[in-house]
Design a protein around this nucleic acid. Structure first.
Lengths: 348, 348
DNA sequence: AGCGTTACAGCAAGCGCTTTCTATCCAAGA
DNA sequence: TCTTGGATAGAAAGCGCTTGCTGTAACGCT
């Protein structure tokens, strides 16, 4: 029924071994033979059997990309960049690797499940994006799993994630702490002294780091933080909307709201508008990430730009072994403060 | 080095066959034996070799999801919904299927390449999302490839794509024509008579269908269309910005701009603002898709909501054989007009 | 001319699993 | 008690490919 290597071999009058070598191009084959084989492949419309090939060669051309939320452009941009580096040449068989993105939905269990599935497929590499979960049991399970994968020869790259010590994983970490600090310092510089902060989910490393940066800035300028000024939520617009109303309720005198990310910031803007407050005249707003839509907010969002595409591309290249991993296996990727219309001098 | 089925069998004092059967759960195994096997699996930390398993069973648990642009929430939302239906139970081995999304970047070649790669992996199913390319040669190649996949037992589902006749593919098609028509009729109803249209890339089916709907509405109301009123571009914000400036240059008297999708509409809004025009007082704007950020535009975007998540979930279920395919293999999914602040009565 | 090389091509042994067919055991029916 | 048959378990034959090793012919050298 289906065409196999042997069929191609028969048609080209060579042995299966030769066909295999032509297809993999890692062994000398005379030009005339190669051509004959390729013609047979073409005529029979032969498609290699991936599983058989992976089994025999003990490697596969699958590369996994784990993301928290595929509907979020933050991950989409990274995933796209990673995948575009994976598709290209660089591996065996001309490097036709299958870069596959897996959506964990932020669930630690699903993350682990996907890792197992990828391990089962003997993936060539795995790139994990976005913040990690901090709960100790999960971290331990993750470490163990990653180490096992690495031991089995799978290259692991963390993109926008904190390093995972002793797992053999390379890490491209975003400087969330530094970005958070810079952002808040900008607001303080404008004269703000009462700043609300809408944080992400408590257990995420990203959440903690950004918040730490914010607090470091406050401390550096001798501003004592009021516990009422921090609200935790999810990384989405809705959460930003609700959290902002809550902040306003707790302390109507706030002159600035710093959000966990741009989506949250957009929700914050909506809440402020709905509360009859003007941005930035009454309240300044700041986001994080600088996703494409941030510039379309009215006023445009002050935020910290993360080089998502660049970092993703680099992670992809490292995963493919096409770029030297950073020294020590760890590199920090800095963000850039983008000052735009949503932040201004507080009124009187 | 790595643990194999045989190792587990030895440890559990059973034959490899029995271990396989326990793992696949499709053959009677005594409870006590099963337990012994599972314990051994656990103790040895055994992970099935996917390629070997796929080879022997002649099926794999891979499900491919093709998207045009993974950084675009339009696709992200669908992909997320599809994937969430795929992860669940329903197949062999408790249905731990690996739903993988592949980013074609809108390139027909990459689309074909991915299809080949999936064919090579003997994917269990493939879901293709988004509009198709209309160029005849590519369509023919696609049809051939899809038919081949289907013949090999891969279930094919098109989600938000026009049907592909005689390929054995199921289709969930968006009613882009109807949505486009409804949207423009809304604007006409408000009193608009001079409407600019920013279309997507010419060769996409989605582009053509939405534009046809728009034109049908104009025709139905006896409005003669000026060729200057249509500009083609890409499906992104930037394109919307530039196209709007172009439209304004061609005919400054336009009172409404209809965009190919929401991202384009956002770009249009920015261009109008930058040109000193107010929305909707001077010019009304309409988008398409109703992506999450559309409601955050100022004013909120009038658009056509497409049930992306629902359609994706349904496509995923059909791909998994968990839901009856629509009668005739084809179903049309309608959009819903969302009237919001960006459209209003034209001045004067 | 004789010999070591080099350049290809083929043989055959797996890779780790699934599955058909067969063997075994034990309870139930005659 | 002897047969029957259901319920499990095992043996073994592949699944389609890769690759180490083994030819073998043609080439370059002394």
């Amino acid at each position: 029924m289906t065409v196999t290597l042997a069929d191609v071999a028969a048609r080209a009058q060579v042995s299966p071994a030769t066909v295999s070598r032509v297809l993999n191009g890692n062994y000398p084959v005379a030009a005339s033979t190669r051509e004959r084989v390729l013609r047979a492949v073409d005529e029979l419309d032969y498609v290699l059997n991936g599983p058989a090939s992976s089994l025999a060669a003990a490697t596969s051309d699958l590369v996994g990309i784990l993301v928290n939320d595929i509907a979020d452009p933050f991950f989409g941009i990274m995933a796209g960049a990673i995948q575009s580096e994976i598709g290209g040449p660089g591996g065996r068989a001309g490097g036709e690797r299958l870069g596959v993105v897996c959506n964990t939905g932020g669930s630690p269990e699903r993350e682990l499940t996907y890792l197992t599935l990828l391990q089962r497929q003997r993936a060539a590499a795995v790139v994990l994006t976005g913040g990690a979960t901090e709960a100790a049991p999960h971290q331990a399970a993750m470490s163990a799993k990653l180490r096992k994968l690495a031991d089995a020869g799978t290259r692991i790259v963390l993109c926008g994630r904190p390093p995972a010590p002793e797992t053999g994983a390379f890490a491209l970490t975003f400087d969330n702490r530094g970005g958070g600090r810079e952002l808040t310092e900008h607001l303080i510089g404008l004269g703000h002294r009462r700043l609300g902060y809408i944080a992400g989910p408590e257990e995420r490393t990203t959440t903690r780091h950004r918040l730490e940066g914010h607090r470091a800035a406050l401390a550096a300028h001798g501003i004592e933080e009021d516990p009422r000024w921090t609200v935790h939520g999810r990384y989405d617009r809705r959460s930003g909307y609700e959290a902002t109303l809550e902040l306003l309720r707790r302390d109507p005198s706030l002159t600035a709201v710093v959000a966990a990310n741009d989506s949250v910031a957009l929700g914050a803007c909506a809440a402020l508008r709905d509360s009859g407050l003007r941005i930035p005249d009454d309240v300044s707003v700041a986001g994080f990430d600088d996703l494409p839509f941030s510039i379309d907010a009215v006023p445009a969002l002050t935020t910290v730009r993360l080089p998502l595409a660049e970092a993703g591309a680099r992670a992809g290249r490292i995963a493919m072994g096409r770029e030297e991993p950073p020294p020590g296996g760890i590199a920090t990727v800095r963000g850039e403060l983008m000052v735009r219309g949503s932040s201004g001098v507080p009124r009187g």
